[in-house]
Every structure is written in structure tokens, then in C-alpha cells.
Write a protein that binds this DNA or RNA. Structure first.
Lengths: 244, 244
DNA sequence: CGGGTCATTGAGTCAGCTCAAGGCTCGTGG
DNA sequence: CCACGAGCCTTGAGCTGACTCAATGACCCG
């Protein structure tokens, strides 16, 4: 059961072909008429508010979702009940892939701010993939990219110190914003310090201290969630601090 | 030395339909004639020896691989040159999925012991998937399962103490052996302490100390790489030690 | 203006790291 | 057959980066 109401607001009429995220999202590398067919199966709901759930762990998996605007975090729950933030998703990025293996979502996805989400029924997508090899390949690419980013996070958690983690996190947000045509060196973080800490395997105190340190070092400017990267080179250096 | 006899499963003639791993590997849920078609595209090479490379980071991606016998580790290299072990793969498991996104492998895969590997050319697999929706779905399942296991590892690295990590690691090996019809409470670890430490984000000293502790607690018996789990309940408890 | 949430900063503790020493096993060569 | 070296593993001792605990500040909303 999807939480997204089917009522259409004017804002929801954007078709895949017109969508500004066209070149980032699922339609990449499709022909124009193919985009039209994909567009036919995409369902666009009313914007979600901060804290609203896109899907919940344990729910039956029936669709994947594309973030059209706003931002979403995904969390998994361990057996003991504690939450692990497994990712932050920005416009053009796809969530819900975790449910394919078992037919149930293993993660929960929650809007971090007012967000528009496109819902793509999975069985329709599968059918379409059979007719459109480009779409099949694109979808596999997206899953594989997700694997690669999970593995980067694994390396981060396994090998990097707190400062390197935060620096890498900021660089990642910066690059993804840049990929969407925004400036790379200034942005608002849509998530709380606590989400960042959870994601990076740090406490919120450590996140806060590292932000302060980077600020004092003149690498970033910081006003609550508003970040300006004033010295990108130094920030990149900080993602891989020398060990000796 | 592996528990797996060197006689039957290393020879190259086994077809997917006859393979004992049939129900774990890619052919799961295929019809008999479909298995035959899959079998036609699978290439079986000569057994690899310990340390041999299955594929290397940076190589052009053209195939995925199934482990038929033995064991394989995958590693990614960070920009600074240090290696991160990202997974251990046992018979019936699929490696090489990391290359789909970019067309290049981002990981390196190395045999941990004498191993037989099936090579499945990716473009042939894609073609076959279009004809065989079951195969397409199965392949997506395998990728999704990989995502889920990466996310479990992320939680492990982000939230768990050394003892919980090792316990979870042993339970994982045990379960996967059991899934292949072996006993779950006794096995040889095909990887070194250093590989385990690297994988779990611990130093080899810590790995060694935790093994000793679990041994002294009567939970496992240990003779080099030969492990006997003598108290599975206690080991499971140790994967989620109470924090207060 | 009071209560709640989120963020910052400081002080002290500790799990796992580094450094160091020594043991076990296996292969090689005298 | 033993000596020797090279890996790999184990164990001990001390150090340290991030955690816990605690207090305070900033902001939002009713």
C-alpha cells in the first residue's frame, strides 16, 4: 500500500521527457518514444512533508521510487532495534532497490524535507525492460552504482578517521549537487547532525567537533545547515589525510 | 586446505543442470530448458590456484563469475592505495557485479584457495534475460541480495564492537555453509586473519584476541583455520551484545 | 515566555590501535 | 636430517581518538 495519494496537483504533471532530471534518472540513454512509454507507468504523488515515510521496512515491495525534488534518507533496523542510516538520496536518485531480493523492503525511506517522489511499479518496469534493452541496462547500471557507493561507504567506515569521513561526505554532497547543475561549493544540508553521525558511524558530538575544526581551519564556512566550501583543495586533502 | 575434495567439482565438464549448486546459483527458478540455454553461454575455465586473480580493478567488464568451488575475496583500492576487503564469496555466489555501472571493474577478485569459477559473458546474459523473464528477475534478485549484504556490513562497521563483528562473521560463514548442505558448526576459514581484520575494520591483533576470548569462553574451538562452533546460542548472543 | 529539539563545547574514560616480542609452520638448501 | 628464514599468528604493554557524560547555548513553536 503506497502512501502517495493519487490526486494530481498542477505541479505533478511534469513528464519524464520534460523533467529537468531526465539525464540523471532512469530515462538516461532512452529514445524519445521509449521515455514516453516509461512515463506512462510512472505515478506522481502529492509532495511529501519532512518526516513522511516513502516506504517502510517489512512492507511488500511493489515499486521503486525516484526522488524528483527534496531529499530522502534510508534506514535499516538491526535486530536489536537500533537504526542505521544507509544513505541520503537527492533529486534524480533512485530508492527502494532493497526490496527486490525478498519481495519486502528491508529499509525504511523517510523524507528529510518537502519532497516530490515518482513511483515506478516494479512489475511494469520489468515488462518494459523486456521490450527496451536500454532500460534494462540502465536499471542494472543504477543498481551497480548503488553497490559501488555502498562499497565506498564500507571503506570509509572501515579505514577512515572522523575528519576524513566528514570531508568525504561533504565532497560527495558537493559533487552530486554539481551533477544536477547547482554550484558545488555552497549548499544546505537537508539532514540533521544526528543523521550525519549515524550515517558515518560517528556520534553527533564528534560530527560537531569536526565541523568546528574544519571551520577554524578555514576550509568551510558554516551556519547551521548552510555550508560553503571555501577551500575545496584542502577539503579533498582532508578526505585522505596522510597517515605518516 | 579446503574441506572440499579436489576430485569431482574441479573438473570443467559439470553443466549447470548437474551442478550441485543449481538451487543457489543463477539457475534458481529457471525451467529445465532455460537452464540448458544458460548453460550454453557459461564458460568454465581451469581451476584457479590460491592468489590467482579472477578479475582486476580497472579491467574492462565483460562477464560476471560464479564461484563453483573454493573461495574468493574481493577488494577495492582507495585512492591512497590501501586495500579494503569488501567480501568473501563461497560456492554458488556471484562476483563481478561491480563492473556493470561503469563498464570497468572497480574491485579486484582473488582466489583464497584452489577454486573453480564459471564465467558468464554479460552481453549474452542480457540477451538471454530478454527472452527469459525468470532469469532477469533472478539476476536482479542476486544484485539486490548483494545490496542487502553490503548494508548489513555497513551496520556492522558503523555500530558494532569487535566481538560482535567477529561473532557475526562466524555466524554468516556458518549459515552459508549450511545453505550449501554442509554442517554449520564446523568449517575451515579459507582466509587469513589479516583478510578477516581488513574486512571487519579491525587489526589482526584484535581479530586474534577476540578469537582467543571466544575460545576461552567455550563458545568456539579453534585450531588455526579450523573452527568448531561449540555453543551457537552464545555466539548468536555475542553478535548483539547488550549495551547496558 | 516556557518547553522542546538540536547543536556546540569541555572533561574524563576506554576499546581498539600501535609497537614490540616471541612462537609455530612450512619450504628450502646445506 | 636439521638449520634457517619467511610468513602468519598470538600475546603483552602502553597510547590515543572517539566515546560518554554533562552543561550550556540557539532556535522554534505554541
Amino acid at each position: 500500500m503506497s502512501l502517495i495519494p493519487k490526486t494530481c496537483h498542477l505541479h505533478n504533471q511534469t513528464h519524464c521527457g520534460d523533467c529537468r532530471l531526465h539525464a540523471l534518472c532512469l530515462p538516461l540513454s532512452l529514445q524519445i518514444e521509449e521515455v514516453g512509454k516509461l512515463d506512462d507507468i510512472v505515478q506522481r504523488g502529492r509532495p511529501l512533508q519532512k518526516g513522511d515515510v516513502v516506504y517502510r521496512a517489512g512492507e511488500v515491495f511493489h515499486a521503486i521510487f525516484a526522488v524528483r525534488s527534496g531529499a530522502v534518507k534510508t534506514l535499516s533496523h538491526s535486530a536489536e532495534g537500533d537504526e542505521q542510516v544507509t544513505g541520503f538520496y537527492l533529486p534524480g536518485e533512485i530508492i527502494g532497490l532493497d526490496g527486490i531480493a525478498t519481495g519486502q523492503h528491508t529499509n525504511t525511506a523517510i523524507a528529510l524535507e518537502t519532497s516530490a517522489i515518482c513511483e515506478i511499479p516494479f512489475n511494469r518496469l520489468e515488462e518494459l525492460s523486456i521490450q527496451m534493452p536500454n532500460l534494462q541496462r540502465r536499471f542494472l547500471q543504477i543498481m551497480s552504482r548503488e553497490l559501488a557507493s555502498d562499497q565506498q561507504l564500507i571503506t570509509l567506515l572501515s579505514k577512515k578517521a572522523a575528519e576524513e569521513r566528514i570531508a568525504a561526505f561533504l565532497v560527495s554532497i558537493s559533487r552530486r549537487n554539481q551533477g544536477r547543475g547547482l554550484v558545488g561549493n555552497e549548499f544546505y544540508l537537508p539532514m540533521s547532525r544526528s543523521d550525519i553521525g549515524n550515517f558515518l558511524g560517528l556520534t553527533i558530538e564528534t560530527v560537531s567537533r569536526v565541523f568546528s575544526r574544519l571551520h577554524k581551519a578555514g576550509i568551510i564556512q558554516l551556519d547551521k545547515k548552510h555550508v560553503v566550501i571555501s577551500d575545496m583543495a584542502a577539503l579533498l586533502d582532508a578526505t585522505a589525510a596522510e597517515k605518516f
